[in-house]
Design a protein around this nucleic acid. Sequence first.
DNA 1: CAGTATCCCTCGAGATACTG
DNA 2: CAGTATCTCGAGGGATACTG
Lengths: 132, 132
Amino acid sequence: MDTNDLPGNVLDPNCPSRVVFQRIGDKWASLVIQVLGDGPVRFSELRKMVNVVTPKVLTQTLRALERDGLITRTVYAQVPPRVEYELTALGESLLQPLTMLRQWAESHVPTILEARDAYDDAQDEALLRSPN
Amino acid sequence: MDTNDLPGNVLDPNCPSRVVFQRIGDKWASLVIQVLGDGPVRFSELRKMVNVVTPKVLTQTLRALERDGLITRTVYAQVPPRVEYELTALGESLLQPLTMLRQWAESHVPTILEARDAYDDAQDEALLRSPN
DNA sequence: CAGTATCCCTCGAGATACTG
DNA sequence: CAGTATCTCGAGGGATACTG
């Protein structure tokens, strides 16, 4: 890694800081993190809360988060098996920026949706004027 | 939109607030936004700064951002053509949470990288102990 | 319960070439 | 200069079925 620490390196798609953005954009990862923000959750609970994700995909997501040191996986030796996932300190520290983002989202999404409608309408109109 | 405004709706993958997370995670969108944070930029400049993205992909990205009302596209009628992209007020307001995220990333990515190494090493070791 | 093992299949990024 | 038009290819998400 020979990239310097200037803010400019965010422009490099290979900059390691991109991994964070990738996780945020991941379909399930950010959801899982938010859920775990309230405390440890079991695999099957997670599946339900996060709205019927397939076990394979959920496992992939959880493994990735565990690998990044954002969550821990604890197996309780008992039958039936019981596995709990929990945020690490690192994971919890991500909660803050995540919340900020969510707040921005909640307050601005209506505007975005309006912008989309307006854009799409303008598109349609343009099509009507110059039919191909 | 019949979803309530409880924080819990973030768990719904169809929740509109997800569009924000998608943009953040988009390979180029967040980069473009950060670049435009310093002022209007032309298409070709954008291409260079963002590290040789193909014109098709850059166009897609820009159109999406424009549709969401995050940037504007201004065509100057002259030869050769000149098109500038610029953040809207909405787009600028996104700069703040984006910066927070970037700061988190810059200060925690080393930890994440270490966690990955540790995880991968543990995996390798486990493989050695129980060869398939 | 908490996964793993397969197969499928779409979608998005990239390469390449062409145009107003 | 600022795009558009095709094609390809691989990764990731999902469905389904099976296991310790």
